[in-house]
Design a protein around this nucleic acid. Structure first.
Lengths: 334, 334
DNA sequence: CAACATTCTGCAACCCTTTGCCACGCCCCC
DNA sequence: GGGGGCGTGGCAAAGGGTTGCAGAATGTTG
């Protein structure tokens, strides 16, 4: 039972295929009465345009790809959800691609899809900037939670957020903090460290960086141990997963949080409000980030922009139980 | 800069387009030397077949769609991940579709995609069985965590799991349990209740069902309150999200878990090990479920099967802190 | 009513591959 | 030496739309 084509509709409506085509994709190029008649016939025949035939000539696939560095990171869920919803609202389909934290896989997957999608959303891309620029020369690209000069981007605000974070710790008496850094090639990791360092300097707090660490719960053990080799009274983990891993390890080692050490994370994932103690973290409307990114991508498809827009979605410091006053005595004296 | 087509390659390699096509998709229809030459030329020209042109005639898109009832449910993460990985391994792309817990949206999205994908993975579908059968008449379909006579399916074992769960509670002295049910149209909810009821009857435990509840943390409040209107000493929540909501509400109301009430969930989501108390739950290798589902779908595409296979992936009862001995006195006496 | 402008609509080429069918050359065998 | 079979490769027809161009129909104006 072959499904009906544009020919069937044309024949049934007694017009040419071009008229049928236009009735759908250029409604004002055909008289209202004719259009109605065609659409009605199409409906009656259950006609649905074949997306591949359409894509073949129009070079529009009505599909966008979202590449995430690690699909298992809960932080991306909201991002994906926002993007999916927004895409659907414009009749676009979202293809999800997992880079598995590997720049090579990321690139391979992108190559593979260049012909089948209209554009890419690159979330937390691990590619060097030049690769991205090169890609953007032939594809529509929006980078998410990363900024690359010349590329459209959406990031969750974090410079000011980091400042607030350090300031929050400073006000609790912390004089030495450690940043447990994310992956080497993560723009976010570098950017956060820069913001933390600047804020620390300004507030007279000593800040150091350790790592890099893979942003997973499993890596939290090593991160916690590293943090404990320092005199820092507060640890800022690259993300909530890492922070939760740190909390676990500290509990195992009998270090009290926040009495002995304060811990903060980034992302405000669902679990941050469940772990013990609950986690102070820099959150924000991740779904909005995803939504905005798709929006940027879609508008960039049908209008040329002199300058690539760089959007910033506000963040919010969520205070929970993992931060408290700095301990006054040395940890080893306890 | 138009990218190179099969014509360019054919011309450069001095063969016909059919030979180029066959060099790629039917390697043994062309002499080894010719094939090498063609492939080399293609490589040199950076030729990549246009997936749409290919799909148009071959009717194969190398894409499968996965429809989930709610993309924000962490339980699906592993499922999605397993499916994505398996699909990628066979050169397939995974399209993710969110049904937002709405049967209507679910159906619309499926319709929209019928022409652009080779098959559907329907996870926790909320459609009535007849809709699914009808869909399966024209599309390749594998249902996940649901069983429909006549359709290929993969489910995480839960009948035996529910038995273990009830048995675990019975051994702790619980004589009355309540099942806080999932959505009305969820096959899983019905199936779990049947298993729980059977096990309870067998073990001499009183079981009742309340609900339905939307399987979210937010609904946990109502579910907990409902549970407290009964004399049940243990609550089995439809999934971990609901269970976590229940835990929260119980804590707010000063009901101790597990001293006063035991709580168990399903899925073993990441957060189940983080909440307070940690949650006893029926877990399993969800990624395997996703993997198996894709596998079933892919094999069903190139080989006819008399009988639709129904796979069952083993589950595992994870004992944590939310279950303990049944209280001996009435809750209101406390 | 003629001349011209404006909408509509149809023709036909094109988008890029796949694939059924046929032709060719070669080897083998009788 | 002629015929059959097999391994290769080419021809050309899809596959289902979109779109530039031009002709037809309709409307406007003087």
């Amino acid at each position: 039972m072959r499904s009906s084509t544009i020919y069937d509709v044309a024949q049934a409506a007694d017009v040419s295929t071009s008229t049928v085509s236009r009735a759908f994709s250029a409604p004002d190029r055909v008289r209202a009465a004719t259009r109605e008649h065609v659409l009605e016939t199409a409906r009656r025949l259950g006609y649905q345009p074949n997306p591949h035939a359409r894509a073949l000539v129009s070079r529009r696939t009505q599909t966008v790809a979202m590449v995430v560095s690690d699909i298992t990171n809960p932080h991306f869920f909201e991002l994906i959800r926002g993007a999916e919803l927004r895409a659907k609202a414009s009749g676009y389909t979202l293809v999800l691609v997992n880079a598995e934290e590997s720049p090579r896989i990321e690139l391979e997957q992108i190559q593979r899809l260049t012909r089948s999608v209209d554009g890419f959303l690159l979330a937390a891309s691990r590619q060097p900037a030049e690769n991205l620029l090169q890609l953007a020369a032939t594809q529509k690209v929006v980078v998410v939670n990363r900024r690359v000069p010349g590329l459209a981007s959406v990031v969750l605000e974090h410079a000011e957020g980091c400042r607030q974070m350090v300031s929050h710790l400073a006000s609790l008496g912390h004089e030495s903090v450690v940043y447990l850094a994310g992956p080497q090639n993560s723009w976010m990791a570098a950017s956060r460290w820069a913001a933390i360092r600047a804020a620390a300097a300004e507030l007279g707090v000593h800040a150091r960086r350790m790592g890099p660490f893979t942003p997973t719960v499993a890596s939290g053990g090593a991160a916690a141990d590293a943090a404990l080799t320092t005199d820092a009274t507060a640890a800022i983990a690259h993300n909530d997963l890492l922070a939760i891993g740190v909390l676990r390890r500290l509990a195992d080692r009998g270090v009290r949080v926040p009495a002995d050490v304060s811990v903060v994370g980034f992302d405000d994932i669902f679990a941050a409000d469940l772990c013990t103690p609950t986690l102070t973290t820099l959150g924000g409307a991740h779904a909005d980030v995803g939504r905005a990114a798709v929006e940027l991508l879609l508008t960039s498809m049908d209008q040329y922009r002199e300058q690539a827009p760089q959007l910033v979605v506000p963040s919010e410091l969520i205070l929970r139980r993992s931060t408290g006053s700095a301990r006054t005595s040395d940890l080893s004296d306890r």
